[in-house]
Simulated scan of single mutants.
Amino acid sequence: MNQNAIEQYLQSLKAMGLSDEAIAMYRQQMEQSMQLSSQWASQLNQFGQNIQQFNAMFTGDNSDDNAPADAQTLLLNPDSTLTPEEQWAIACGADLALLNGQYLNDLTTGFTKQECRELLSEWWDIDSKEEVLDMINWLFQEGHRIQYDIIWQAMNAVSIKESKAFLREHVVANQMEEEAAMQRLRNMRDAIELFQQHELIGKGTQPEMLIWDYARIINLSRGSFDAGYLSREEALDIILRCVEPIRKMYTSWKQLSVSYQFARCVWNGVDEDIFEDMMAGMEVLLTDPNSPWVKMPW
């Protein structure tokens, strides 16, 4: 079972585009870790941490079930000097900023330079301005939304066999990538059932994936500003580039938030406890009088 867990993790790394060299390094580290301990519980705990680090690097949050009780507290910087337009752009990443305990109305996250550098390195594998710009460019040009659209098409195939055939043709190059893509497909089906059950989407509705990539662009730019990798002007310029596509794609803060939460379930899997936390956070953002979403109508 432990070996299967390692292979599942490595398949996810491969599907997300990591190099063969990086995957080989992860394999060696995990096998060494498991050799050092003969206790199954310790091994499983280490594997769970590795999965969390992987998800955090590609989703921009750590999906921590043990987040502090005040994780949904609105944090606002009273000294913010952003214009209304700039604050509106920052607010488009509020789902993720709220989850991470960051300011909702300023370019700065509220974290220290060292904290941001450590988080960027741990969550995004970013340690320089060049790596920041490479990641942001990838998120603008491709991100996860292209594969999301293909998986959506595969999901609407008549049978699982046809879905697999469609994914093999358009997404996967080998068995490892196929398993990762099929897991996303299963996640999407679970998410659709859950979101329809809670009347967040209608039958046949496809939540748009754009905000999944663009919210991460916004928050990655903010963290990179605090880390000293981007100037204030550079970070705001990148963030403001997100505004027009987001306005064209969505018609309300709620639609934007539902789409973000749906995409998060597709990539991280459906967990009902985490889902409830996500919905509670969305409700706070949509109703709290101090929320940027309430103060700045769509």
Rank of each mutant, 00 (worst) to 15 (best):
T112G: 06
W40C: 10
V284F: 11
G143D: 04
G269M: 12
A97W: 11
E179I: 12
L194H: 06
Q261S: 05
L285S: 06
G17D: 15
N55T: 10
M155N: 13
F58N: 06
L36W: 01
R186S: 09
N105A: 04
Q28W: 08
I201Y: 08
F58S: 03
P245Y: 03
Q11F: 14
K161Q: 02
M209Y: 14
S12L: 15
C242E: 07
F58I: 05
L18Q: 10
S33C: 01
A24W: 15
G223I: 00
G110P: 12
L76N: 05
D95H: 10
S33D: 02
I246F: 00
I126A: 11
R247Y: 00
Q206T: 13
N290I: 09
F140K: 10
G223L: 01
I160S: 14
E193P: 09
A71G: 03
Q196P: 02
M57Q: 14
P289W: 12
A24N: 12
R264T: 12
G110D: 11
N77Q: 02
D273R: 13
Q102P: 01
D134T: 04
A41W: 04
W40S: 12
R232T: 06
D64Y: 07
E179K: 15
W124N: 03
F195K: 03
L240K: 08
E86L: 06
T287K: 13
S159E: 00
E7C: 05
E86S: 04
W212E: 07
G281W: 04
E193M: 09
M188N: 00
D95Q: 10
Q35G: 00
